[in-house]
Simulated scan of single mutants.
Amino acid sequence: MSPSIELNKAKQCAGSYVLAINDTMNVVSGKWKLPIIGALFFGKKRFKELERNIPKITPRMLSKELRDLEMNGIVTRTVYDSVPVTVEYELTRSGQSLTKVLDVMVEWGLEHRENIVGKAV
């Protein structure tokens, strides 16, 4: 069944619609997961690069969230046999498919900021 047919079915049933929203929220919930995913849209990153790209995240929280995202199939972790050991994180195909979601969120956020604060970023 195609994704558009699935979406149409979910939109016809409140239970299916809410279940799909809950499934999404279980994967991307929390303060830091979406910023991590957003940083990884720009390509593979090492841990310290992610730390620099995401202001105010602690190393402990970044590590925890990366493990959660990896467990949910959103991020892959690749360890290279080098000295010192190099670890890179990147989005899986499923993680990359969140582009549509984040683009809509960014668009809404820019519009909302302009309406509330009176200026765009």
Rank of each mutant, 00 (worst) to 15 (best):
I36P: 00
H112T: 14
T99Y: 15
Q12D: 07
L50P: 01
S29C: 11
V101R: 02
Q12N: 11
E107C: 09
E114D: 12
V87S: 01
M61H: 02
T78A: 06
F47I: 00
T86L: 14
A120Y: 02
L50Y: 07
A14R: 04
N26Y: 03
L40E: 05
E107S: 15
S29Q: 14
S94Y: 05
N26S: 12
E70C: 12
S16W: 00
I21F: 08
I116G: 03
V87E: 06
I74Q: 05
Y89I: 13
R77C: 12
I54N: 03
I5W: 01
K45H: 11
V117E: 07
V79N: 05
P3I: 04
N8W: 01
L110E: 11
R113I: 08
P84Q: 14
M1R: 01
H112F: 15
L40K: 09
E90S: 15
S29N: 13
Y80H: 13
E88S: 08
Y89S: 09
V87Y: 00
L69G: 01
I5H: 05
A39E: 06
F41W: 07
I21Q: 11
R93Y: 12
T86A: 10
S82R: 12
V106Y: 12
S2N: 03
E107F: 09
Y17N: 08
N8P: 00
I74S: 06
A10W: 00
G15E: 15
Y17M: 08
G73C: 13
M61A: 14
K44G: 03
S2W: 00
R113D: 01
V101P: 03
F41E: 06
G109M: 10
S94E: 14
Y89N: 08
L7Q: 10
M25T: 10
G95C: 05
V106A: 11
R67L: 09
H112W: 15
G38W: 05
S63T: 04
I5Y: 03
N22L: 13
S29R: 14
M61C: 02
V75A: 07
T76M: 13
A20N: 10
G95M: 07
N8S: 06
E6V: 02
N26R: 14
I36Y: 05
W32Y: 15
G109R: 08
T58R: 10
L50D: 10
V27Y: 02
G109Q: 10
L102G: 04
I36T: 06
Q12R: 09
A10P: 00
Y17P: 00
A10S: 06
V75C: 06
V104D: 11
V18T: 13
P35L: 10
V121L: 04
T99H: 13
N22R: 07
K33G: 01
G38K: 13
W32V: 05
P84L: 10
Q96L: 15
V75T: 08
I37L: 15
K56D: 12
K11E: 09
M1G: 08
Y17H: 05
G118M: 01
G109W: 03
N72S: 15
R93D: 14
E111H: 12
I74G: 05
E6Y: 00
E111L: 12
A10I: 01
R77K: 15
P35W: 09
G73R: 11
K44L: 10
V101W: 08
G95R: 05
D81C: 02
P55W: 00
K45R: 15
M71G: 03
N115G: 04
V87A: 06
